[in-house]
Amino acid sequence: MNPLTTALIFTTLISGSLLTMFSSHWLTAWLGLEMNLFAIIPLIINPHNPRSIEGATKYFLTQASASMLLMMAAMMNFIYSGQWSLLNLNNQIASLLMLTAILMKLGMAPFHFWVPEVLQSSSLSTGTILLTWQKLAPMSILYQIAPSINYNILLAAAMTSILVGGWGGLNQTLLRKIMAYSSIAHMGWMTTTIIIHNPTITLLNLFIYIILTLTLFMLLMVNQSKTLLALATSWNKAPIIMMMMLTTLMSTGGLPPFSGFAPKWLIIQEIIKNDNIVIPLAMAIMALLNLYFYMRLAYSTALTLFPTSNNTKLYSLFNKQLHLPLLSPLVVVSNLILPLTPIMLIFE
């Protein structure tokens, strides 16, 4: 892609998200989401092939429908209250439409069907943007309208997302689809923190999720793997990278003593403090589904040795791998910040 075109696309993408996150007016928030939508479409289409065009079309139709619902909700709220402020969402129908639009934007159940298909149609770098940066603007809107939404509907969507995210990834062999279902499950965990009114845990969960997703996608880009079969033959080529992927996968599954355990631990603790035992128990049980397919990935990558001749171990000496300077600090953060959890709670 032309460097000037790339710079223009990323400038529009970043500006749209920032405009939505820092706006207090529904029209500017909607405008930022539209800028975000139109900037990501060329990235999904690149490289140009029928599969990427199909994914871009699915993404466009879903996100455009969500934007239409969001604008309809904002107009209904304006007719009812006479204000365009994000913090004055008093109409119940407008609140329901707005919540539906945000769930579609985030790819949460029952509007999750576009996430695996679009991610599978995109490159690894574009998939990284879809699962990290593209979540910031809808999450900021959801956080601001949290006092006005129906918590029962949001809780049902969150629990369904955790279940679908674990169940859908069980039989997958395509790594991008596995990461898509992982994102659906993480969005379910993240929205439960909005229900319990704890912004510190929400930000911590979002930060750790973005770090873990960036680390996993960078490891996949360095290893140039897109399927489970490709990962199964990677230990001989890059054992250190595969060991990093093993620990990062365990962290993403929420296994102690890695960093991914911190948000799950804090979320369950906060819900129990609110005198609710059934919901965190169900969430913990459904999280085992995610941990299962993370363990399957870890078993294929680092816990088995593919039967090959010794000459293949020299493959990495003659293969030019992609070098990402941010990979090392990301691996450290995604695995070793659990002891810092008490310090993070000081700001609660």
Rank of each mutant, 00 (worst) to 15 (best):
R51Q: 14
W84T: 10
L99S: 12
Q92G: 01
L31I: 10
A64F: 14
L27C: 01
G32I: 04
G55S: 08
E54M: 12
N88F: 10
P47K: 14
N49Y: 05
F113N: 11
L89K: 10
L33S: 07
L87H: 14
M104G: 07
W30K: 09
M68Y: 09
P50N: 14
L87Q: 15
A29V: 13
T28N: 07
K105T: 00
Q92M: 09
Q92R: 11
W84E: 00
T28E: 00
N36I: 02
S67D: 05
M98R: 11
P47W: 07
K105S: 02
L87S: 15
F113I: 08
N88T: 14
E34W: 11
A39L: 08
K105E: 00
S52C: 10
L97P: 04
L89D: 01
L86P: 08
I41M: 07
G82K: 09
M108P: 07
S85W: 02
N90E: 13
S81T: 15
N90W: 09
H112Y: 13
A101W: 11
M98Q: 08
N36L: 10
A66G: 11
N91I: 02
L106D: 01
A94R: 09
S65G: 15
M104T: 02
L31E: 01
R51Y: 10
Q92K: 13
S65P: 02
K58M: 01
I102R: 06
L103P: 00
K105W: 00
N91Q: 13
L69F: 15
T57K: 09
I40S: 07
Q63K: 06
L89M: 14
A73R: 11
N90T: 13
N46I: 00
Q63E: 00
A56C: 04
T62M: 14
W30S: 09
I41K: 06
I41Q: 06
M71P: 01
T62C: 12
I44Q: 08
M104K: 04
Y59W: 04
I45G: 05
M76G: 04
N46Y: 15
P47Y: 07
F113A: 13
Q63A: 05
M71I: 15
M35W: 11
M75Q: 07
I45R: 13
M98T: 14
M71S: 12
A109Y: 12
L99V: 06
M104E: 01
I41A: 05
A101P: 08
N90Y: 13
F60N: 00
M104N: 03
A29Q: 05
I45Q: 12
Q83M: 08
M72W: 05
L33V: 04
L86E: 06
F111P: 03
Q63P: 06
T62L: 11
P42D: 04
P47Q: 11
L87F: 12
E54D: 13
A109L: 03
I40G: 05
A66V: 02
M104I: 10
A94N: 08
L61A: 12
T57M: 12
A56N: 08
W30Q: 07
G32S: 05
Y80T: 11
F78D: 00
M104V: 01
